[in-house]
Design a protein around this nucleic acid. Structure first.
Lengths: 164, 164
DNA sequence: CTGTATCCCAGCGGATACTG
DNA sequence: CAGTATCCGCTGGGATACAG
């Protein structure tokens, strides 16, 4: 499927593999983009990570119209990122709430990376979100780590196609 | 600017801060989306991380049309993600190459996170990109880390608005 | 080979109006 | 409060043609 083209690297700072995606052009990045590549999806995801669950909250916090929120939430449910769950407060009629599925929660590293990058875009304007580890108080860093715990800069990263 | 609304958290697994973005709705995530929130931008970025530099390469590898590539590259240059740099091979006429600026290279954690998430979308289909740390051979993990080197799961993350 | 300029269509996303 | 349905403008992105 994904036709690979094993050029050598002449460029410092490139992932040590080049690929060419023919026939449908499906790579993991594109798959992700297909799910959350719209502005509306991403800002909804943001609010879910900040704890929102109810339609009304989501609409108010994102600034989306009800129509747009409705459409996007439905799509995200059918994509498996969200679960629509009826709940009942005592004395109230039943309502629906939307919660991240495990799959949706796996977007945390993506959201964290987007926040970190967005912070760096506006350091001068002082508009950012600081993420910290509440167990030790240390800030969360915009870096990639390997299973051995090392910081992995771009230059030390090797990429290769898996499962073929 | 960003009007904050300090609700308490009743939801396990939520970042320990809720925010409401009024007046222009500018949060770091949206800023990032504004730069790289399109499919064409992201797959171009992908190819830059894989080492592509020349227009022709970029067009072939991404499958974008020349027109689209041209437009998106111009926008990315003016956004400061790319630099357009004339170069000369001996005996050839001068050409342009596009290289990531420092700002663009800071997208590495975003790209890595997108790849990791995309991998998890298709484990069954065996279509993924494996990233490894070439200094130690360990795989790169889809996790968030703090400055102390700890793995930081969503539940242990605190977010707050900075610079206000 | 390295682009740019048009034309066109599909989809995003806002506005408005309407239902349970 | 929690959504749907409809209409409509804007832009992303492909196709095609052209230019240095």
């Amino acid at each position: 499927m994904a036709e690979i083209h094993s050029d050598t690297i002449e460029t410092a700072g490139a992932l040590a593999q080049r690929s060419e995606w023919k026939d449908g052009g499906w790579c993991p990045i594109e798959r992700t983009i297909d799910l959350v590549g719209t502005r509306s999806a991403m800002i909804l995801i943001r609010e879910f990570f900040f704890g929102a669950r109810r339609f009304d909250d989501l609409v108010r916090r994102t600034g989306l119209t009800e129509a747009m929120a409705s459409r996007r939430l439905a799509q995200m449910v059918s994509d498996g990122l969200l679960e629509r769950r009826p709940y009942q407060e005592p004395g109230q009629r039943t309502r629906n709430e939307y919660v991240l599925t495990d799959l949706g929660r796996h977007l945390f590293p993506v959201v964290a990376a987007l926040i970190q990058f967005g912070n760096s875009l506006a350091e001068d304007r002082g508009q950012g979100i600081e993420l910290t580890h509440d167990q030790c108080g240390a800030p969360i860093e915009p870096a990639v780590h390997c299973a051995e715990g090392h910081d992995v800069p771009l230059e030390e990263t090797v990429a290769r196609l898996a499962g073929r």
